[in-house]
Amino acid sequence: MQSLTRKILMCLTGLFLCFFLIIHLLGNLQLFLPAKTAQLQFNAYSHFLSGNLFIKMVSYVLYASIILHALYALVITMKNKQSGGSYKTDNRGRASKWYSRNMGMLGTVLLVFLIIHFKNFWYEYKFGVLPMDANGNKDLYTLVVTTYQEGWYVVIYVIAMIALGYHLLHGFFSAIRTLGVFHPKFVRWIRYFGIGYSLMISLGFAIIPVYVYFLNAK
C-alpha cells in the first residue's frame, strides 16, 4: 500500500471519529438537565441508541474506525521511525508545534482512556447488570453520575480531554490536508474551524464530569 493511501485511511477514519464526537457530545449534553429529567431522558436516549438497527451498523463502523486508525498509526509511525534521521544535536523542534510531532503519544493516551471509558460505561451497559429506572430503561445515568463522583476518574477524564484537544487540533487540519484542499482561502478557514472544533469538543467533554463532580460534592 502506498504511503498516501495509508494517510487517506488515517484521514477518513479520523474524520469519521471527529463526526462521531459531535454526536456523542450532543447526547451527553442531556446530563446538564435537572437530575430527574436527565435520568429518564438520558436512559431513554441510551435505550433508543442500543435498540436501533441503523445505529448498530454505524457503531460497527465506529469500532472499525478506532481499530483501523490505531493500527495504521502504528504502521505509519514504525515506518517513519525507520526513515527519519537522528542527530547528536537536535534543534529541529523550533520549526513545528510539539503536538504535531507527538500525535502517536497523544493517540496512545487516548487509546488507554478509551479502554477505561469502554469498560466503565459501554461494557457495563451491554454486558453488566444495571438497575432499571422508572420507565423500565437500564439506568446508565446513575452509573455515569456515580462514576463522576470519584475524583481520580474526573482527573483522568480531564487529562484525556486535554490530549484529545491537541490531537484534534493537529488531526483535523492534517486530515483535510490529506484530502487535498490546497486553496489558500479554504485552508485558512479550515484551520480556524479546526481550532474552534477542537476547543468545543475537548472543553465540552471535560466540563461534564467536572460539573457532575462539583454538583454532587455540595
Binding site: K7, A95, S96, S174, G180, P184, V187
Partner: peptide, 25 residues
C-alpha cells in the same frame, strides 16, 4: 524509503526557498 508526511510543516519553515506546504496539499 522516505517516511510519511505528518503535516508538521517543519519543512516549509527550514526550506531555503520557502516552498509552501500547500504544494503537499
Amino acid at each position: 524509503d522516505f517516511g510519511h508526511c505528518s503535516n508538521t510543516e517543519a519543512c516549509e519553515v527550514e526550506c531555503p526557498q520557502s516552498i509552501s506546504v500547500l504544494n503537499i496539499a
